[in-house]
Write a protein that binds this DNA or RNA. Structure first.
Lengths: 119, 119
DNA sequence: GCCTAGTACCTTGCAGTGCAAGGTACTAGG
DNA sequence: CCTAGTACCTTGCACTGCAAGGTACTAGGC
């Protein structure tokens, strides 16, 4: 599966961007995050998420707070720190830049693609 | 540099997408590709590009043709194969999907971010 | 013929990531 | 106790971008 592999690569990095975005306004715990990402058509497993969250937390970008649950073990509610907010802004810019680049490249392509695939 | 690292991740996959896009209409050789990517603000080194092109070629997505140069060694001009064109379409869809997802997530974020950063 | 500079192609090794699989620990109910 | 459900975490694999270093062709000076 060539395409699938590339698409996985595409989603790299955005995942982090999306997560930081989702944490920008709410305290959220992992299962909730997975759920929200799924609603935006980004399928992620917890084996992906936990290392990512831990990494961001150790880097000082996230903070967490334990809260007990009535239906199981306690939950870790994450939220952004001030540096995390700064990162979010940087990623937002980067995202817009990349978007711009892709637009630029794609715009020069589409017209000619049509002609060529016509053959 | 946390942000820089993430941004590198972000560009993963897109690079492949951009390259396939650039090859959609023209035969291009490596140095030319680097140049065009640079014009779209995507800085890439040849150490990144050669393995990528070789990989795509071995997967049957690209084909190449040697052409002699007047100012040095011969050049390898790449172009898309039919499966490569198919990949381009798939990546295009994936790109739009991701774009949609990010929009969805970001739209829910921005409003509240403003309020919160106001603190 | 030999040397240097310029161009083009390619390989190796490192650091970083997503993900599947497997593991620990808490709660509730029989 | 034992099972089921939930939540958190770790390990190992495959893959990638990139810096650094290498090979090979041409042209021009001597």
């Amino acid at each position: 599966m060539q395409a699938q592999n590339t698409i996985t690569q595409m989603r790299r990095g955005f995942l982090e961007f999306c997560i930081v975005s989702l944490l920008a306004n709410n305290e959220v715990y992992t299962a909730e995050l997975i759920d929200r990402l799924k609603k935006a058509n980004l399928l992620v497993t917890d084996g992906t998420l936990y290392p990512l969250l831990n990494r961001l937390q150790k880097a000082g970008l996230l903070q967490y707070r334990w809260e007990e649950s009535e239906s199981g073990p306690p939950r870790k509610y994450y939220s952004l720190t001030e540096p995390g907010r700064k990162l979010l802004n940087e990623l937002d810019s980067a995202w817009q830049d990349i978007n711009e680049s892709v637009k630029l490249i794609r715009s020069g392509t589409k017209k000619l693609t049509k002609v060529q695939t016509n053959e």
